[in-house]
Computed example of a mutant assay.
Amino acid sequence: MTSKRTKLQEDTHFLVLRLLQDNPEMSQRELAAAVGVSVGGMHYVLTAMIEKGLVKLGNFTAAQDKRRYAYTLTRKGVAEKTAITRRFLARKMEEYNALKAEIDVLTQQIDIDAELSPDGR
């Protein structure tokens, strides 16, 4: 069974990989704001991804500030993003199905309550 913390970490990695695939020039600050973590936390995530070989760090040549970096997904990073996407989608489908079942039960309960109500509401 996957812990809530592990799911949260995987969701963070999923979002970061997804954002970087489309916007490799995003800064750590921009990524942190988009994902909803601290800049220090984002630095930790990116460092771990670089060490795992998921992301490659390079200079962002179009930037005036040559200290800016581009975070490019490696082949391994693209494969990991695909695997995480599959797990993320499966988890969200389970959540959707559970929510839909709950909505169906509540809708039936409302219908039953309306039939039993003296004023028909």
Rank of each mutant, 00 (worst) to 15 (best):
L15D: 11
L20Q: 07
G58A: 15
Q108I: 00
T74R: 11
D11Y: 09
D104Y: 06
R5W: 12
P24R: 07
T107P: 01
T74Y: 06
R67N: 12
G40A: 11
A48M: 03
P24H: 12
L17R: 09
R75C: 05
A101P: 06
I110N: 10
T2G: 04
R5F: 14
E80R: 13
L89I: 10
V55A: 02
I112R: 15
K66S: 13
G41R: 05
Q28W: 00
G53W: 01
L116C: 06
R67K: 13
L89C: 10
L31D: 02
H13G: 00
E30N: 08
N59I: 05
L73M: 10
G53H: 04
V105P: 01
R67S: 15
A63Y: 05
A83P: 00
A32E: 02
E10T: 02
E115V: 05
G53S: 06
L89H: 10
A90M: 07
L46Q: 07
R87Y: 01
T74S: 13
V37D: 09
I110R: 15
Q64M: 08
Y44N: 14
A62C: 00
R67I: 01
A62T: 03
M42R: 06
L17E: 05
D113Q: 08
K56D: 12
Q64K: 13
A32F: 04
G53D: 03
T82N: 09
L15S: 14
D104C: 02
Q108E: 14
I84F: 03
P118I: 05
Q9V: 01
N23T: 06
E80H: 06
F60H: 15
R87G: 05
R121C: 01
F88M: 13
N23S: 11
M26N: 10
A114G: 04
S27N: 08
D111N: 13
T107F: 02
A114N: 08
V39H: 08
M49I: 01
L106G: 01
Q109Y: 10
R75L: 12
E30Y: 02
G120F: 10
T2F: 12
I112K: 14
F14D: 04
A48Q: 07
R86T: 04
E102H: 08
K52V: 02
K92S: 07
V16G: 02
H43R: 14
Q9R: 14
Q108F: 04
N23A: 09
G40P: 01
A90S: 12
M26T: 00
R5T: 13
A32Q: 03
K66F: 07
T61G: 08
R86D: 04
T61W: 13
K66A: 13
